[in-house]
Design a protein around this nucleic acid. Structure first.
Length: 515
RNA sequence: GGCCCGUUCGUCUAGUGGUUAGGACGCCAGGUUUUCAUCCUGGUAACAGGAGUUCGAUUCUCCUACGGGCUACCA
């Protein structure tokens, strides 16, 4: 009777739990947001949204020594940049330039939860699942050295495990520094059930008596994640594969506390070209770097989503918006093997989004890159730097040539400064001087006849193509060269459109004067 | 060294107990084009190796090799 009832309760409870999808992103504030973090966080977000769940942001700052000033702010800003919105945790309060926490399980910053951890560590201590350890780091180092030498796995030798309660109390009284270690029972098999990898088994004999409470009173990651994931009712633990080896420690802790396990999903690593774990050294890896290099957030999200996952099912489309990704995302389709980050592919995706983007929106995102370099590159550019219409025309003509936003204006100095045309450049293939001169004069006549109102991209294109007739090269090349002074550029119609009638005619006159 | 994970074109990947092993990026060639770029078409290139199961394995199992991760009072 009793058992049946209880089982039913348990079943109901777990059913509710299963429906209640809650995932967390749990970064450490140790620097600017890494592209790998972005991928993990994106999968968190996609999974939560796909399953109508909640996304929690929790700051894992239990290592004070590694903490970097402003890292949390950077993180929140980057999340805003790419459009990943969480439901609980710290948020930027832009009005007051502060960080504010929101949610029922606050605080979401581990350094503010110290008393919670000590409480749970004490529980473990009481139940005999943990013990105090007074070993100095010098002794520990020496011990590991010896173990390495004799080809033993480096593990704590449990010297302090057998200390009597009296001795422990005594040494604590004497203010001796100590840590608390979890006591892993021997001879067991620990199974980590992973959504992506299936069941992964570990012998408990190979699991170290991990420190769970450091001598500074802070918990280690292992204790803090388990406690917080439990208290914050996290249903799915999604994190990088580098955590797989420590997953059995977490499973053991859940068991010690008597808590239900969350679902684990260990994501494949993002790799350098040489297949090692993606790191700085090998180029920029922070989200901010990519954004600053002129990659659109849509491209970055799209690119990173397909590193280690794809919709499958013979689907060949690879361009997906964030909302579309939510539609098709499936955590179980995530791969097992690591994925090399290939910037060339990112470039392609980026240029795709640049071509697609609404021109005004694109302009707003692009012009800031242009302005920052404007003075250095184009001494004469000032006359146009505030001319939104002019810059927008340049962008429209250039957009199909852009791989990154930072390319804007890069190869088109002729739009902004004075040019010097040379005879050689103006001459098309075997044309004689007379032919070139005639072509230029004819072009000037054609352009001169187009009145201001008709000075549109479309009209210029059709008029000039008509004027070019069959022998396009001998007409269009000198015109383009006269307008740009460059070997490569957008089409003469586009250049004329951007430059405007007056400037175009003036440049043509300068060219004609050379002959 | 120990533990764990992984392995389809160079890269990201689809896919199946029987397929001409498909797509994307890159690269190469051709086309469109006044140039460059865009765009279009085509081409190049892969199931790590061995054994087993099977009528048949890239697909299932085992072994090996190779790669990677972890091995802290870091996360």
């Amino acid at each position: 009777m009793f058992h049946t009832k209880k089982n039913n309760q348990v079943r109901q409870f777990t059913q509710i739990m299963e429906k209640d999808i809650r995932v967390r992103m749990a970064p450490s504030p140790t620097g600017s947001m890494h592209i790998g973090t972005l991928r993990t966080v994106l999968y968190d977000y996609l999974f939560a949204k796909k399953n109508s769940g909640k996304l929690v942001l929790r700051i894992e700052d239990t290592d004070q020594s590694r903490e970097v000033e402003g890292a949390v702010t950077d993180l929140l800003l980057r999340l805003e940049d790419v459009g990943i919105v969480h439901d609980e945790g710290p948020f930027m309060d832009h009005a007051n330039e502060k960080i504010q926490e929101r949610g029922n399980y606050a605080p979401y910053t581990q350094s503010k939860r110290l008393d919670i951890y000590t409480k749970y560590v004490n529980k473990l201590l009481e139940k005999g699942h943990a013990y105090h350890c007074f070993c100095s780091s010098e002794r520990l180092d020496e011990m590991r050295k010896q173990q390495q030498k004799s080809k033993q796995p480096p593990m704590y030798d449990r010297t302090c495990c057998t200390l009597s309660p009296d001795e422990v109390a005594d040494r604590i009284d004497k203010d001796e520094k100590y840590v608390v270690r979890m006591k892993v029972s021997r001879g067991e098999t620990i199974t980590v059930d992973d959504l992506i990898r299936g069941k992964v088994e570990f012998k408990s004999d190979t699991v170290d008596d991990q420190v769970i409470l450091k001598s500074d009173g802070f918990p280690t990651y292992h204790l803090a994640v388990v406690v917080d994931d439990y208290l914050m009712k996290i249903s799915h633990v999604i994190r990088g594969e580098e955590w797989l080896p420590s997953a059995p420690k977490h499973v053991i802790l859940y068991k010690m506390f008597g808590w239900d396990l969350p679902v684990f999903a260990h994501l494949p690593l993002l790799l350098n070209e040489n297949k090692s774990k993606l790191s700085k050294r090998q180029g920029d890896v922070s989200v901010e770097d990519f954004l600053n290099k002129g990659y659109l957030k849509e491209a970055l999200i799209n690119f990173v989503a397909f590193l280690g996952w794809n919709p499958g099912g013979g689907q060949t489309r690879e361009i997906y918006s964030l909302d579309e990704l939510i539609e098709v995302f499936d955590l179980e389709k995530v791969h097992k093997a690591g994925a090399v980050v290939d910037v060339k592919k990112l470039n392609k995706i980026n240029s795709h989004y640049i071509k697609q983007k609404d021109i005004d929106e694109l302009y707003d995102e692009t012009v800031k890159f242009f302005n920052s370099d404007l003075q250095k590159k184009y001494p004469n550019a000032n006359k146009h730097s505030d001319d939104r219409d002019f810059l927008k025309r340049v962008l429209e003509v250039e957009r199909d040539r852009l791989e990154r936003l930072t390319d804007f204006g890069q190869e088109n100095a002729f739009f902004f400064g004075d040019i010097t045309a040379h005879k050689d450049l103006l001459t098309w293939k075997e044309s004689t001087d007379d032919q070139t001169s005639d072509a230029l004069k004819r072009a000037r006549e054609v352009l001169a006849e187009i009145n201001q109102d008709n000075w549109t991209r479309e009209n210029l294109a059709s008029t000039l193509m008509d004027a070019a007739g069959d022998d396009r090269g001998s007409f269009l090349w000198p015109l383009r060269a006269a307008l740009t002074g460059e070997k490569r550029s957008p089409s003469p119609m586009d250049c004329a459109w951007v430059l405007g009638k007056q400037e175009s005619l003036s440049r043509l006159k300068n060219a004609i004067d050379l002959f």
